[in-house]
């Protein structure tokens, strides 16, 4: 299957998704939404990898996508456990209320 989609358009789409993810991380105050935006950014990176792999005809792009997938799964499990713990200790998911960490 040969497709005639130009690589520029795909990279543009990946860039747009990444920028949307960054905007989501900055705008939102709820930790769950920030984690969702991080997922969007990881997806955009994966899309760029797969597009580059298809462009060069090499399998390395999809291999990198697999690694991103595994990393995202591990990150989400730890992140959600942290969110549960934060909610149990503070009864809130507001990041401004977590100032006591002095981070």
């Amino acid at each position: 299957m040969k497709s005639s989609i130009s690589i520029e358009m795909i990279l543009l789409l990946a860039a747009l998704l990444f920028v949307l993810g960054i905007a989501g991380v900055i705008i939102r105050k709820n930790i769950i939404f920030m984690l969702l935006s991080v997922e969007v950014m990881l997806n955009a990176a994966g899309l760029a990898f797969v597009a580059a792999g298809a462009h060069l005809g090499q399998p390395d792009g999809q291999v990198m996508f697999l690694f991103i997938l595994a990393m995202a799964a591990a990150e989400v499990s730890v992140g959600l456990a942290l969110i549960l713990q934060i909610y149990h200790q503070h009864k809130s998911l507001d990041i401004d209320k977590l100032k006591e960490m002095k981070g």
């Binding site: 299957m1 984690l35 792999g53 997938l69 995202a72 989400v76």
Partner: peptide, 26 residues
């Protein structure tokens, strides 16, 4: 889009792992 790019394996994994497993966790 992955499927259109000629990466059917990545497309399937995207559905199974992202839309299936990770979203269920959320």
């Amino acid at each position: 889009i992955f499927f259109l790019l000629g990466a059917p394996f990545a497309a399937l994994l995207e559905i199974i792992i992202y839309a299936g497993a990770i979203m269920v966790l959320f």
